[in-house]
Amino acid sequence: MLDSALHNGKIIVFGVGNFYRSDDAVGLIVLEKLRSQNLRGVLLIEIVGDGLSLIQEWTERDKVIIIDAVSSGSSPGTIFRFDLLKQQIPNKKFHFSSHTFDIISAIELAVQLKKLPSELRLFAIEGKSFGFGSVISPEVFEASKIVAHDVMDLCKAHQITIKSE
């Protein structure tokens, strides 16, 4: 259950994916690694496809990190890092989700509604297979470890920033 006390922590990490669609699960796998670290004041939320859930969870004061699988034609396991308040995603290059209201659409809607968080970062990991199955590709799994480490560092840096605010 979402913990409203945690929500006041202002750091939200979204893992996007489906455990039964092979490498599509990588966002959720990173989330599991973070969960095992007991990061205080960090809200970890699993999103399966409904991008609108993201903008309904964050407020304008929150610091938000999104982790998702991506299919761009790059080498499997390639990690893309975006600061979404400063950079635009090359939408034509990336195919994120088969769902209508994917996370990119949701972020575009948040822009129109002036509902963006104070910080919005995206870690996207290139997948190899998105077919049915619960096995993740080795190179994608390796990338998940790196992203988990990077996100942990980012959360710790945010916690220091929040404490000093």
């Binding site: 609108l52 903008i55 209201f101 659409s105 809607l109 129109q112 509604l113 002036k114």
Partner: peptide, 19 residues
């Protein structure tokens, strides 16, 4: 809905509140 939100943000917000 993104284009709709440009002209009618309150309508889209209403939908989000319902959801």
């Amino acid at each position: 809905a993104i284009q709709l939100a440009k002209d009618y943000p309150d309508i889209v917000q209403q939908g989000l509140q319902l959801k």
